[in-house]
Simulated scan of single mutants.
Amino acid sequence: MAVELIVMYLAVGLIAGLLAGLLGVGGGLVIVPMLVFCFVRQGVEPEVIMHLALGTSLASIIFTSISSFMSHHRRGAVDWSIVRRIAPGILLGTFLGTMVASRLSTGFLKVFFCIFLYSVATQMILNKKPKASKELPGLPGMFGVGNVIGAASSLVGIGGGSLSVPFMLWCNVAAHRAIGTSAAIGLPIAIAGAFGYMVNNLHAVGLPGYSLGYVYLPALIFIVCFSVLTAPLGARLAHALPVDRLKRIFALFLYVVATKMVWGLIS
């Protein structure tokens, strides 16, 4: 593997881990588009590029989420009762989402991902937090919400923070606690998502060497090496920096990334 690609994978891991801990939005928002760029540089078959990026992203989030939620847990910012109640729905919804995604085209998945990026970026720019007007639902409601968050996350390769944090804020969960709990919720999303992308189309045509289904192991290893180191740093910074201002800056970056991907689809 070219040294250039190794350096890129390490850089992706560094940034993704930091953002996962700091913003609670899931490193996948950065990992997926960067992996798409790397896979294009490698000459991976276009038909599997997006699937490979989504699967590898979710596999890397397994390690990022552990590192991140442990840091939040030490600060008492993880509500484990929420995690326990939402996890069954998360696991089922995420796995079923990977089954659907494995049968969709790369073009469709790219368009869906770009729309998601634009919506997340717009939410960050406007900084409109949902009014805390509800209480957390019972087990059936949490199972249903988990299904939706898991399925959506599997289609965009993220840890679900962009969906679970607003949901918890809407249900009167404090902001710092919502971010910490979201980091923990990212673990079942990542496990079910990575497993789903591994077993669906395990022998798909066009996969590069050292792939386990839609998970590219070399990229996974190099990303994880740095993401587990920077996720705790991000979690510490989340309690000390003006996160709302940083989110607006990050939103501008997401606009650029999404527009670049759209331009690539058009051209």
Rank of each mutant, 00 (worst) to 15 (best):
A194E: 03
V40F: 07
E4H: 12
T98W: 03
N172Q: 14
M1Q: 11
T181K: 08
R245P: 05
L10H: 04
H72P: 00
T98C: 05
P232G: 02
K260C: 12
G97L: 01
L104F: 14
A77R: 12
S227W: 03
L58W: 07
M198G: 01
L254F: 05
G157L: 07
I179L: 12
I6A: 13
A178W: 01
I49F: 09
Y255L: 14
V83N: 04
S227L: 09
S57I: 11
L136E: 10
Q42A: 15
I185F: 10
P218N: 00
V3M: 15
S211H: 06
L126R: 15
L35A: 06
V111K: 13
S227F: 10
L155T: 12
P88W: 10
L241C: 09
Y210Q: 09
L220V: 03
A183C: 06
I249V: 15
S68K: 03
S164D: 09
R85T: 05
G161Y: 01
R84I: 09
A251P: 13
G264C: 11
L52D: 07
A238M: 08
L92V: 15
G234D: 05
S65R: 02
G234L: 01
G13R: 06
G206P: 04
G159Y: 10
I185K: 00
A59F: 02
S164K: 09
I191M: 11
G28L: 10
T259M: 13
M34G: 00
A121T: 12
G213S: 05
F69C: 00
S164C: 12
H239V: 00
G55Q: 04
K134F: 14
A192S: 15
V78K: 02
L212M: 12
A235E: 04
K260N: 13
V36N: 02
F39Q: 07
L136W: 11
G24R: 03
T259A: 15
A59N: 04
P137L: 08
L92S: 11
I115V: 14
Y216D: 05
S154V: 08
C225V: 15
S119E: 13
I125E: 06
A258E: 05
A77P: 00
A178S: 15
G97T: 03
I223D: 04
G93L: 04
I115E: 01
T106M: 10
A174I: 06
F143T: 13
S133I: 11
G144I: 04
V256T: 13
F37L: 12
S60E: 08
F95A: 06
S182P: 07
A238G: 01
Y118I: 14
F108H: 08
C114L: 09
A11T: 11
H176E: 14
L252K: 00
L104H: 11
L35E: 06
A53N: 09
A11W: 02
G89M: 11
S57Q: 05
V83W: 09
F250G: 01
H239I: 03
I66G: 00
L163I: 15
R84S: 12
P88G: 05
G17V: 09
Q123F: 12
E4C: 10
G206Y: 03
V199H: 01
Y214F: 15
G27N: 07
P46E: 13
L237Q: 01
